[in-house]
Simulated scan of single mutants.
Amino acid sequence: MESDSLHLCIDYVGSSGVILSPEQKASLQTSLVILRSESKLKKVYFWGKIIGIKDDYFVAQGTGNDEMTERKTYYSQDCVKWGLLPPATKIMRDQSKLAKGRFTGDPSFEFEHVETKKVGEGEDATEEEETITIKEEDRLASVIAEIDEDVSVVPRAAFVKTPTGQVKPNRSFEGLTVSESAKLCSYMHFREPKILVEKSLLHKANLDKSIDFMDTLEDDIPKGSWSLQFERGSGLVCLRSTLWLGFVAYHVPGTRKFGSVYCGTGEKNADLPFML
Score class of each variant (00 low, 15 high):
residue 40 K to R: 14
residue 22 P to H: 13
residue 224 G to P: 07
residue 30 T to W: 02
residue 212 D to Y: 08
residue 212 D to G: 06
residue 96 S to L: 02
residue 228 L to C: 08
residue 201 L to P: 00
residue 50 I to L: 15
residue 243 L to A: 05
residue 272 L to D: 02
residue 42 K to M: 12
residue 102 R to D: 11
residue 274 F to Y: 11
residue 23 E to C: 06
residue 53 I to H: 08
residue 194 K to G: 05
residue 57 Y to D: 13
residue 69 T to E: 05
residue 218 E to Y: 12
residue 269 N to Q: 03
residue 25 K to I: 10
residue 69 T to K: 15
residue 62 G to P: 12
residue 164 T to H: 03
residue 220 D to C: 13
residue 84 L to Q: 10
residue 23 E to N: 13
residue 57 Y to K: 05
residue 20 L to I: 10
residue 44 V to R: 07
residue 47 W to P: 05
residue 94 D to T: 09
residue 84 L to D: 09
residue 27 S to D: 15
residue 185 C to Q: 10
residue 255 T to A: 07
residue 235 G to H: 08
residue 37 S to H: 14
residue 115 E to S: 15
residue 84 L to S: 08
residue 89 T to Y: 03
residue 153 V to R: 01
residue 41 L to T: 07
residue 181 S to N: 11
residue 118 K to S: 00
residue 180 E to S: 04
residue 147 I to Y: 03
residue 64 G to D: 05
residue 222 P to A: 10
residue 80 V to F: 06
residue 94 D to A: 04
residue 252 V to R: 15
residue 205 A to P: 05
residue 211 I to D: 01
residue 44 V to L: 09
residue 246 G to N: 07
residue 259 G to H: 14
residue 15 S to P: 07
residue 48 G to E: 09
residue 190 F to N: 03
residue 126 T to E: 08
residue 25 K to C: 13
residue 13 V to R: 04
residue 150 D to V: 03
residue 196 L to H: 12
residue 14 G to S: 02
residue 199 K to M: 06
residue 255 T to H: 07
residue 266 G to Q: 00
residue 32 L to Q: 10
residue 61 Q to K: 05
residue 245 L to T: 13
residue 8 L to S: 12
residue 128 E to M: 08
residue 47 W to Q: 10
residue 29 Q to Y: 01
residue 257 K to H: 11
residue 102 R to C: 12
residue 218 E to I: 13
residue 173 F to H: 13
residue 167 V to L: 03
residue 74 Y to R: 02
residue 157 A to L: 00
residue 120 G to L: 09
residue 148 D to V: 01
residue 51 I to W: 03
residue 242 T to L: 15
residue 5 S to A: 15
residue 25 K to S: 04
residue 74 Y to P: 04
residue 119 V to Q: 01
residue 12 Y to E: 09
residue 242 T to S: 14
residue 225 S to V: 06
residue 110 E to F: 02
residue 72 K to V: 12
residue 213 F to N: 02
residue 34 I to F: 08
residue 77 Q to N: 03
residue 261 V to M: 09
residue 189 H to T: 01
